[in-house]
Amino acid sequence: MLDTAMLDATILGAVLASIVAAATTLLLASLGELVAERAGTLNLGVEGMMIVGAAVGYATAYSSGSLLLGTLAAVLAGAMLSLVFAVLAIWLATNQVASGLATTILGLGLAGLIGSSFVGTRVDAAPALAIPGLTDLPVIGPALFGQDAFVYASILLLIAVTWGLARTRAGLVLRAVGENHAAAHALGHPVRRIRTLAVMFGGACAGLAGAHLSLAYTPFWASDMTAGRGWIALALVVFSAWRPLWLLGGAYLFGAVSILQLHVQGFGLGIPAQLLSSLPYLATIAALVVISALKRGQGAPASLGVPFVPDR
């Protein structure tokens, strides 16, 4: 009797832990995109930057044997690819939707090229870091406090972004640029430089999310391994109504949907596996509909998606 209870608790703990892991990828990527969008730039290249991060991170970690080096390379790769987008969308004022799509297509191709020689290999996943005292708590201890560095980093990043946007001067300027770039320009703020930095922050975060995917969550390289997570991260930003704390709820909700559908598949209840696999995407659509029906676009930065060209 006691044994089954303990077993149940262990399974529950394992499920919770995998939800946390699935949510972390989404949280990292959506935090970065939120910052880019609060500065007024819609970057649809998240999927591409994430998968480039996954590929470069894996390749570097596998070749050097260092997860830290791999992670840094992933962050750098994501930021570099976002710079391509920034040059197009911010400095040449091209259409942001098309530029973001181009970034994603290019990223998917580059990642496939980089990853092709690593198919079938494995690295040791990022180790779990225990927090003394907390990790020993039953059920939630291992789930929440027996995680790898990426999970803790995502929470620290969430706090930093929330605080930074709301409480610092840099955050205020960034928001001003996103709300009214003409006014921010008139006040002497370098609109395009700020947006470029915000987009590059987003790229770095997407790269980090990719590294989490290929170095911790599933420690190997598979082509197209992001499987639309970058797009779901974009949807989460809309879902959060551009408030960082809401990303936490959104990311964990979607993490839960994507993990629980896997477990339901495992039970074999006669529900087609494909229907369950499409649940995260259907849930994304449902979430977008609900949030847009309720808020009707409120909360979006006023200059979002509008290119800034001085005196044009």
Partner: peptide, 23 residues
Amino acid sequence: LPFDVTRVFQGTLLIAILAADVL
């Protein structure tokens, strides 16, 4: 060569056309 070379070509082409349009 992996087929991804084609995707790189296609992505680069889209980026180049967007930039060329402006220039």
